[in-house]
Simulated scan of single mutants.
Amino acid sequence: MKSTNTFTNKAELYAKYRQTYPSDYIDYLVSKADINDDCIIADIGSGTGILSKQLLERCFTVIGVEPNDDMRAAAEQSLKSCSRFTSVKATAEETTLHDHSVDFVTVAQAFHWFDIDKFRVECQRILKHDAKVALVWNIRDESSILNKESAAICKKYCPSFTGFSGGMHENPLPFHQFFNAGFEVKTFRNDLPFHLDGFLGRYLSASFAPKKNDKEYNPFINALKELFERYSNNGTIIIPNLTRSYLGEV
């Protein structure tokens, strides 16, 4: 796994401004993964618990596995009233979960940070027979001019920017290497409305975004504000966005 400190000091922004997943996507998971209320789901790289919360709302038992202390603490705080939630400090490659103890694995917005080969072996160890893995991202609609312009801003002011979602568009992930055989790809519309503070917060929550003491911070914010002014309507901007899922066995 890449550095577990990538999102340190960004948990508050992440929890506040990162979007949830469409309800029809959750319906799809429940149907296609053949899971029920008795199932245990391991949400790997669970972050601040965004997907975990949506799964808990469907009455599943969820184990959130997250190595970053700030992100994990945010999830533990927001989900402390959920008796079906367990928080584990561990990595995707070494989850510490028992052999064949999990009915389903989810990975939301995190797979591109993992050592894919080691994670595949770990999934095979913790999953029950014929259980599935779901990899999901909220991703910008690449056909959008707004998203193309925001990517240019990020490239200019964010030294570590390699593309949205870890650059998975520019460098496609080896899904055929990860999944055992065939896997299903499903896309859902999930456009994101923001006021100015949310629009800025969404970008500042990214791993590549500069922090306040970085020299690029103010120019980055100013460029985003100018973009917001050009594309917003009555104080709201819509970021064209998709939820894309990859589901299969490993």
Rank of each mutant, 00 (worst) to 15 (best):
M168D: 05
P22Y: 07
A151M: 02
A134T: 14
I221F: 03
P174E: 02
N68P: 05
K215E: 14
I239H: 01
F161K: 12
G163V: 10
Y157G: 06
D38W: 00
A11R: 08
P219A: 09
K118G: 01
G47T: 10
P159S: 13
A73Q: 12
E184P: 01
N171H: 08
S165N: 15
L97M: 11
S101M: 03
N222T: 14
A223W: 05
D130K: 14
G166L: 07
E12F: 03
T243G: 05
D37E: 14
R18T: 08
A209H: 10
F199W: 04
S205H: 10
H98F: 01
N5K: 13
G49Y: 06
F194T: 02
L51K: 12
Q109L: 09
G45S: 10
T243V: 08
M168C: 10
N222Q: 15
S232H: 11
H129I: 11
K118I: 06
D103G: 10
L227Y: 02
T48D: 07
Y231L: 01
K211D: 08
N147Y: 05
R244S: 09
D43Q: 12
F188S: 09
P193N: 13
H112T: 03
S165F: 06
T187F: 01
D130H: 13
S31P: 00
R120D: 04
C82S: 13
N241F: 12
V250Q: 03
R202G: 00
L242V: 03
T20D: 12
